[in-house]
Design a protein around this nucleic acid. Sequence first.
DNA 1: TTGAAAGCGATACCAA
DNA 2: TTGGTATCGCTTTCAA
Lengths: 340, 340
Amino acid sequence: MAGRVTITDVAAHAGVAISSVSSALNGRPGVSEQTRQKIVEAARELGFVPSVRGKSLAGKKTFAVGLVVHRDPDVLELDPFFGAFINGIESWIDERDFALVLQTSPDAAGTLERYRRLAAGRRVDGVFLNEIEIDDPRVELVRDLGLPAVGINPDAGFPLPSVRQDHRAGIEQLVAHLVELGHRSIGFVGGPDRFIHSRQREAAWRDSLATHGLEPGPVVQGSFTYEGGIEAATTMLAARARPTAVMCANDLSAMGFMAQAQHLGYDVPGDLSVSGYDGIQLGEYLRPALTTIQTQPRKTGCEAGRILLELIDGLPAADVDIAPAALVVRSSTGPARPVG
Amino acid sequence: MAGRVTITDVAAHAGVAISSVSSALNGRPGVSEQTRQKIVEAARELGFVPSVRGKSLAGKKTFAVGLVVHRDPDVLELDPFFGAFINGIESWIDERDFALVLQTSPDAAGTLERYRRLAAGRRVDGVFLNEIEIDDPRVELVRDLGLPAVGINPDAGFPLPSVRQDHRAGIEQLVAHLVELGHRSIGFVGGPDRFIHSRQREAAWRDSLATHGLEPGPVVQGSFTYEGGIEAATTMLAARARPTAVMCANDLSAMGFMAQAQHLGYDVPGDLSVSGYDGIQLGEYLRPALTTIQTQPRKTGCEAGRILLELIDGLPAADVDIAPAALVVRSSTGPARPVG
DNA sequence: TTGAAAGCGATACCAA
DNA sequence: TTGGTATCGCTTTCAA
């Protein structure tokens, strides 16, 4: 029974009061170096690990943070993004003895309810707000609840502390890359319009084209899914004036788009250049390997964890900008060939 | 401040003792119907939600269960399987006010350490043991720790309560399907040898072939990843005697395998039939759509959650078998054509 | 510097 | 049927 050792046992074993044990083990002042040594030794011998239960009641913290992932009931497959993002969160919080409570919710209403219950039961000390939507109701919710929260890649002016990774630079690089390859008609497969990051990426695409004096190519709204990419390709490539290059709002939809384009008989990148956004591992192994914009989900998660813990400690947390997502050129983009 | 109401407030508001509030709200006997009404009403008015903190200290439970996902540091993309599995767990535990603590660990040693710390800090009341390996050290660990645990798809004779979904039936159906299509040389792309489910699937493949009087085709060990599928295809299709059909141990590797086969100029299923295992959503949209064996990760998660909660309550939990994974024929398998 | 004691928010036992 | 109280394991305040 490795875990049954309590602070009382340690105190008894070291011959001191439990308050001294608490102080010593938490690095607080008011304990002589000698006593501290003794206590640390006793704790080590006994294999003492403080109970989160006790700490949380006394400390008014739960030592847990929450993330609610909202996914369509039919597509409960997690976006490849999440693995690294979650790992990033943990890389920071674990060392500080926090744990991540993960919930999945099939619908929007359920998502709000999840956040509400996490807060109501004082189950978590703070939450991450990912995949932020326009007028996201979670913002008001966490405000009402007084729940510390960190936004992931929100718009400028987002009212909560946030972690952002610039998307504009990478998209500008990508457009420049395509323009240099001779592309003049560059289409876009977006994500659902309600997401901030959908809009951001589309706006950056549009602006970058303008910089090069180009009109926006065709736009199709996808869904950040493989299936959405397939549908987008079907739609976009059926149109009379098809583009010579298509930028997709994420890798998963780019994969679907590319697969469908190939299925329809287009050579990628010969007939059509295709790019993604995210930089998931899978893209590297596709045929052709996917040109994309490499994001840092692990880093993003790590910074988000850091900020959230600061907020929980009542510290003033400043927004964090991590290094801009950058273009990774692989083989799915190539020289433009006149549309035949 | 929706969450700041404590049991004391409710007791005061209802003019009763906190012990009565506790009894009434937890549906325990010893409270008159009239008093119960009064208390319920007071709780409702005040918006009382019991604090998990308090409950956990007093009740000697944390109301949380843990899952550690072990992934290669370079591939922190979660297997599509996990989304539905996690959702299944939650579908059961949420209603019972349990939460899921998710951790990711890049290496095996770290995984053990995660479990150990979850237990030591009494952070969770029980854990799920997924992707079980031969002589899995976690088994001994949870035994030593006295930590309730549920195995996911272990071998027969696994010493802990488990949830299993039969794999043999589906694989037999698949082999029968291929044999009927005229295939006589059926290869296999396995998962890492240390996993129980890798071995199970390979054994079932081998046995099913024997049933049909067939020799096992070529075997390549993959890694359950897309990349592994690519490598497997490269290896297997370079051999002089290539099979006419290949069964992959999961969908992700089947996707990689198929992509690489196509890249190498093979038509699927014309030249080569390819199948997966899992039944992830993505497979449906591939070109050709992936023939696979449909598992029930959500159901598996749900049942695992149910059993684990029973164990935590000290109830004797029996193993659960959910309906066998069944063959789903799509377009990646077709009539055998003599190897040219 | 040290130790005793008061919470934290529930549950559960035991008198009344 | 009630209500008082000990208890869980820790943090924190306050005397000694």
